[in-house]
């Protein structure tokens, strides 16, 4: 294709510029692009890219707002729910997208579950567990992590480390009692 400006030389540059919200596109030859200063613009292109601040309030509203008519009635009822510890109402949360305290997760559980499901693709924590929270849960997490390290050590043929890990795993399995053999 020929340059859209001089219509003589082949177009080798695709220029897209956004000025005051209006985007224009042109296929130009390099000379015309350079003349226009477009090569610099092209080069600077992504330098002017601004990443939108995620307006979570809006996002949540749009995630939660749509649905069957029955859900809307539910939503009205939910919006009057209030956390007894921090005083946040569900309507506040929908507006700002931020919860007020740990207890909010309990109070708004029924409303949060579908939201988290949609944001995160599920509602099951499979990561780290604080040592102080749940003894057994934490041991299980440690066990999983040790097994992973063992796999790596074996793959890297670090047999001394693997032997050490195997001992640690055995000890943990005993601590947990039977029935924990499959990770």
């Amino acid at each position: 294709m020929l340059c859209e400006k001089c219509k003589k030389r082949p177009a080798t540059v695709f220029v897209r510029r956004t000025l005051n919200g209006v985007t224009s596109e042109a296929h130009l030859c390099e000379d015309c692009a350079r003349e226009q200063g477009s090569l610099n613009i092209l080069f600077a292109g992504a330098g002017n890219l601004t990443f939108p601040d995620w307006s979570l309030g809006n996002l949540f509203s749009s995630l939660l707002g749509q649905g069957a008519p029955g859900m809307q009635a539910q939503a009205v009822k939910a919006s009057t729910l209030r956390c007894s510890q921090c005083g946040l109402t569900y309507a506040n949360f929908r507006e700002r997208g931020r919860l007020g305290c740990a207890q909010c997760y309990e109070i708004f559980r029924d409303q949060l579950q579908p939201l988290i499901q949609r944001l995160q693709g599920g509602v099951k924590h499979t990561g780290k567990i604080p040592r102080r929270a749940e003894g057994k849960l934490r041991l299980r997490y440690d066990l999983k992590s040790l097994r992973r390290q063992l796999q790596e050590a074996v793959a890297k043929e670090e047999f001394e480390l693997a032997a050490k890990l195997r001992d640690e795993i055995k000890a943990l399995e005993q601590k947990l009692g039977g029935g924990e053999m499959s990770g």
Partner: peptide, 19 residues
């Protein structure tokens, strides 16, 4: 720490919850 067995570490914004 604020932690829940189901959804993990509790955060101000649900986009950070879990890990």
């Amino acid at each position: 720490y604020a932690f829940d067995k189901g959804v993990g570490f509790l955060t101000s914004c649900p986009t950070n919850v879990g890990t």
